[in-house]
Simulated scan of single mutants.
Amino acid sequence: MKFVAMSLFFFLSFNCFSLPTAEVSKLRGDVFFNGKKLSISDEITTNGVLKTGKKSFVKITIKDWNSSIVLGPKGVMEVDLSSKEVKKKYTFLSGTCRWVTALNKKAKGAVFTKNASVGVRGTDYILKVTKLLGESEIVVIDGEVEFKNINNPSDTAIVGKGQWGGLGGRYGSTIGDILSLPKNVVEAFDKQLKL
Rank of each mutant, 00 (worst) to 15 (best):
S18A: 15
E23L: 12
F10S: 00
F9R: 07
N34T: 03
S39V: 06
V24P: 01
L27C: 05
M1C: 11
N15K: 04
S25N: 04
F14N: 10
A5H: 03
V31M: 05
F14A: 14
M6E: 15
S41F: 07
F32E: 02
M6D: 14
P20N: 12
F9L: 11
N47I: 02
F9D: 00
A22T: 01
L8T: 03
K26A: 08
K37S: 00
T45E: 12
T21C: 13
F9S: 03
A5M: 10
L12G: 08
T46W: 05
N15M: 08
F32R: 06
F10G: 00
I40E: 11
V24G: 07
F17Y: 11
L12S: 03
S18H: 14
D30C: 00
I44H: 09
D42Y: 02
T46N: 06
C16Y: 14
V4T: 01
V24N: 05
F33D: 06
I44V: 07
N34W: 00
V24Q: 02
S7Q: 12
L19F: 10
V4N: 09
L27H: 03
F9H: 08
K26N: 14
L38V: 03
T46E: 04
V24R: 05
F10K: 05
F17N: 00
K2A: 15
K2P: 02
F11T: 01
F17A: 08
V24E: 00
R28S: 15
T21R: 15
P20S: 13
T45H: 11
F33G: 02
F14V: 01
K37P: 07
D42K: 02
S7P: 00
K26S: 06
A22L: 11
L38T: 05
F11E: 09
T45V: 15
E43A: 15
L12A: 11
K36V: 09
L12I: 09
G29T: 06
S25D: 06
E23W: 01
K26F: 15
S41G: 02
C16E: 14
L12N: 01
L27M: 04
F11I: 11
S41R: 03
E23I: 10
T45A: 15
V4M: 06
M6N: 12
T45L: 13
S41Y: 10
S41D: 11
M6C: 13
C16Q: 12
T21H: 11
G35W: 06
E23G: 02
L8V: 04
L19I: 12
K36L: 08
I40P: 01
N15E: 04
R28F: 11
V4D: 11
S18G: 13
S41N: 07
K26W: 06
S18L: 15
S13P: 01
M6T: 13
F3K: 12
V4R: 04
P20D: 15
K2M: 11
T46C: 07
V24M: 10
G29K: 04
T46V: 08
K37L: 05
F9C: 08
A5K: 04
G29H: 01
N47D: 13
T46R: 07
T46Q: 09
N47E: 14
V4P: 06
F3V: 09
C16F: 15
L38R: 02
F10Q: 01
F14L: 14
L19G: 13
M1S: 14
D30Y: 04
D42V: 05
T21F: 05
L12F: 13
M6K: 10
F14H: 12
K36P: 01
C16R: 08
N15Y: 03
S18N: 14
